[in-house]
């Protein structure tokens, strides 16, 4: 189970890094979303992977660590808000500049200065 889990997290991270390095805003947003999934899975695993146990000490033979679950929940909420904001921002940039390249080579500050 640990191996499968590690491969999943690793693949997600690798794909997200590839997408982020594309330097176009939409792939980057998708990449960051995938990265946050990978991070959430990783955080979840830091309490050690346990199946079929309750997060209460003494309720069974073993217990699962409740803290990573709380952390992941917080991270999901924050990540969700961030994704929403970055999508809006990406849409605005696309509308204003007519391109979704993050570092558009033709973009120069002089355009505005000349006005």
């Amino acid at each position: 189970m640990e191996t499968l889990y590690a491969i999943t997290v690793g693949t997600l991270t690798a794909c997200s890094v590839y997408l982020i390095l594309r330097a176009r805003s939409f792939p980057i947003v998708i990449g960051l979303t995938m990265l946050s999934y990978a991070v959430n899975l990783f955080l979840f695993s830091t309490g050690r992977l346990v199946i079929d146990q309750v997060p209460i000490i003494g309720a069974g033979e073993h217990y699962t660590d409740p803290l990573p679950q709380a952390l992941v929940l917080t991270a999901i909420v924050i990540g969700f808000a961030m994704t929403a904001y970055s999508i809006i921002l990406a849409v605005r940039v696309r509308g204003e500049f007519g391109s979704d390249e993050v570092n558009e080579p033709n973009y120069q500050a002089d355009k505005e200065d000349k006005r």
């Binding site: 982020i20 805003s25 980057i28 960051l32 990265l35 946050s36 991070v39 959430n40 990783f42 955080l43 695993s45 830091t46 309490g47 803290l67 990573p68 952390l71 991270a75 924050i78 990540g79 961030m82 970055s86 993050v102």
Partner: peptide
């Protein structure tokens, strides 16, 4: 975008340390 990537790294390091 830079800070979103930074936040992800922050969580990873917290996970490692925890």
């Amino acid at each position: 975008l830079l800070n979103l990537a930074g936040s992800a790294l922050f969580l990873i390091s917290l996970g490692v340390l925890y």
